[in-house]
Measured scan of single mutants.
Amino acid sequence: QVNIAPGSLDKALNQYAAHSGFTLSVDASLTRGKQSNGLHGDYDVESGLQQLLDGSGLQVKPLGNNSWTLEP
């Protein structure tokens, strides 16, 4: 069960990665100043990332080996 409060997208993504045990490689300029609506409930990694990114204009991309990145 994930419980991440709304706020900074950077912070939300870092909390989610730490909670879910995956690696997220992101260029900080992509997420700077963006906000997230947070995340509450049970999600697989990709669904949770998509939910956190909702409205940010960013997309999640798998890199393999439980690693992910973001792209515009």
Results as ranks from 00 to 15, higher is better:
36 S>R: 02
35 Q>D: 08
67 S>A: 13
64 G>F: 04
5 A>H: 08
2 V>D: 02
19 H>Q: 14
61 K>F: 08
72 P>V: 12
64 G>E: 06
6 P>A: 12
52 L>P: 00
21 G>T: 03
60 V>P: 15
71 E>G: 06
25 S>V: 15
1 Q>A: 12
36 S>A: 06
27 D>P: 09
64 G>C: 07
53 L>F: 03
51 Q>E: 09
20 S>W: 15
42 D>K: 13
58 L>S: 01
67 S>Y: 09
67 S>T: 14
59 Q>M: 13
43 Y>G: 03
44 D>M: 06
9 L>N: 00
60 V>H: 09
13 L>T: 01
25 S>L: 15
28 A>L: 11
27 D>K: 07
65 N>K: 11
71 E>C: 11
65 N>D: 10
8 S>D: 13
14 N>H: 14
28 A>D: 10
30 L>T: 04
34 K>C: 10
45 V>D: 03
37 N>C: 15
50 Q>W: 12
21 G>W: 06
63 L>K: 07
15 Q>T: 09
37 N>G: 11
55 G>A: 05
21 G>P: 00
41 G>F: 04
29 S>N: 13
7 G>W: 02
34 K>R: 08
20 S>N: 11
10 D>Y: 14
17 A>W: 04
8 S>F: 08
65 N>L: 10
11 K>N: 13
69 T>H: 07
42 D>Y: 15
56 S>Q: 06
65 N>A: 10
14 N>R: 15
32 R>F: 14
56 S>N: 04
60 V>N: 00
24 L>W: 07
29 S>Q: 10
30 L>Q: 03
45 V>E: 02
68 W>M: 02
60 V>M: 11
12 A>L: 09
21 G>Y: 06
6 P>V: 05
33 G>V: 02
37 N>P: 13
16 Y>A: 00
42 D>V: 15
51 Q>T: 12
4 I>N: 01
25 S>E: 14
49 L>V: 01
38 G>T: 02
31 T>H: 00
41 G>Y: 04
6 P>I: 05
14 N>E: 15
33 G>W: 07
12 A>C: 15
59 Q>F: 11
52 L>G: 00
27 D>H: 08
6 P>F: 06
51 Q>L: 14
14 N>K: 15
71 E>N: 03
34 K>Y: 07
4 I>K: 04
47 S>Y: 08
4 I>H: 02
56 S>V: 04
9 L>D: 01
49 L>M: 07
63 L>N: 11
44 D>W: 04
64 G>L: 05
25 S>F: 15
54 D>T: 13
47 S>I: 09
59 Q>E: 08
12 A>H: 02
30 L>E: 03
32 R>T: 10
36 S>F: 04
12 A>I: 09
54 D>S: 14
48 G>Y: 05
23 T>K: 09
30 L>M: 08
50 Q>C: 13
25 S>N: 12
5 A>Q: 11
3 N>K: 11
18 A>P: 00
59 Q>K: 14
19 H>I: 15
70 L>W: 01
70 L>C: 08
69 T>I: 13
48 G>F: 06
8 S>P: 15
26 V>D: 05
25 S>P: 02
11 K>L: 12
32 R>I: 12
41 G>Q: 02
40 H>E: 09
63 L>R: 06
34 K>I: 10
64 G>W: 05
30 L>P: 01
58 L>K: 00
65 N>H: 09
43 Y>W: 13
72 P>Y: 11
22 F>C: 09
40 H>I: 14
33 G>L: 05
48 G>L: 05
38 G>P: 02
29 S>T: 12
41 G>P: 00
51 Q>R: 14
57 G>E: 04
63 L>Y: 07
6 P>D: 03
59 Q>H: 12
22 F>P: 03
24 L>V: 07
7 G>F: 00
15 Q>D: 13
35 Q>F: 15
17 A>F: 05
18 A>V: 11
61 K>S: 06
